[in-house]
Design a protein around this nucleic acid. Sequence first.
DNA 1: CGAATGGTGCTAAATTTTGACACCATTGAA
DNA 2: TTCAATGGTGTCAAAATTTAGCACCATTCG
Lengths: 239, 239
Amino acid sequence: MTARLRQDAIVRSLRRNGTSTVADLAGEVGASRRTVLRDIKALRDEGFVIHSEPGRGGGLQLDPQSVQTTARLSVAEVFALLISVASMRAAASLPFSGLADAGLAKIERALPSDKLRDLRRFLDCLYVGQLSPQVDISDMGAMDPALLPAFETAFLQRRHLRIQYRDAKEAVTNRNVEPQAMLILPPLWYLVAWDPARKGFRHFRMDRISRPEIDEDATFQRRHVPFENHVRPIRDLSR
Amino acid sequence: MTARLRQDAIVRSLRRNGTSTVADLAGEVGASRRTVLRDIKALRDEGFVIHSEPGRGGGLQLDPQSVQTTARLSVAEVFALLISVASMRAAASLPFSGLADAGLAKIERALPSDKLRDLRRFLDCLYVGQLSPQVDISDMGAMDPALLPAFETAFLQRRHLRIQYRDAKEAVTNRNVEPQAMLILPPLWYLVAWDPARKGFRHFRMDRISRPEIDEDATFQRRHVPFENHVRPIRDLSR
DNA sequence: CGAATGGTGCTAAATTTTGACACCATTGAA
DNA sequence: TTCAATGGTGTCAAAATTTAGCACCATTCG
């Protein structure tokens, strides 16, 4: 029995029995009283809240609110969770958004610092809003997640992006644009980009974009994107 | 230097240098070649994807896609994340829902088993759907999360629930009902319950419910709740 | 007061981890 | 072909860590 397994057993026992004494736990997990006390200290160091009462009738009690879980997530999964929860908050205020945000903030903090920096920089480009109820979205396509890496690279390295765009009239054009922001109006995503040829901002619906290519040579400066009041940066939501 | 710290150092080094040899890593972390190989095996067992090339010019490489994060979450936070992502999926299909679900599944699996059982049983009572676009939700209140523990207990122990309900005409009634399901039509929550006095199912908007009390004496059997096609159980979404 | 409880320090014993070595398979350059 | 550089495994004794036992302290309650 390794230390880790024994500590898990102690947590399970406390959870099951409510209150236990050190001696009981020692008998249960087959270790000495001293070792159980060391384990209790280790668990407290890890963040478990364990109340204790000395004296006759005393004992140990695991704070039920502190029951915890650890999971190992990839950066892509964290990203997906962030977007989902932030979009949800924008679309409909749920009673749990505070808790979900707190959970996400913990996950985010645990990211390795270099990935965290990239993720934050990309999240800074993301804005969420709400589609006006009049729009019929039943026939709209979903964006292809396979497109995302190209966009992420273009944003982070501030490279020009070549895309093929099919507009509302089905006319197909080729563009070379500066990606400035991504706007999420669930379920639609828009690329907000400065079009140098037209000297103006354009919104491109992501499900109408195909064949994105990074222009390796040209870089650009960030511009201030004029968003309306009901569009909010996603970063505010995940803090 | 504990094993854990050394393994973290190895991951950092691989992330920084791209490719390293076992001998280089051993020198860097101050351990023997054999120990580094043991650590590599442990990291792989934990889910890190480490490519290796034997032979001259070979070495170890950490798959950048497998960069991972661990976070310690409370059950309430996991619950909030589950609800948020599932609701989001119902309201609007996002490109990442698969990834977010995968991340959540990992988190869910890491829950302590007794809490996991409770959470799953409660999730089995949850259904999501989409409010029809005609409904004006701008003036609707949010449910009070403080109510949830009473509902959760009533569901899990199948206890009758006493509530005070204020209906659409502002008429206040007292009910004693059997909670059968929760229906989430973002941003509104409904309690779907069998009302024995009226011998029928009733939908109660959660923001109109007050003073829920568990009836300690009476228990009930689960009933089949007749849901329409566009209402889906939440559990399907988080697998 | 005394028994039951949580908590700490110390030390020798028990256990686990580590390093060293031999060895194998693969690769690429000489 | 040959050889050096690499990843990978098995074995075993040495090193390091963990554990049990013990003494002891503080607190609580009957």
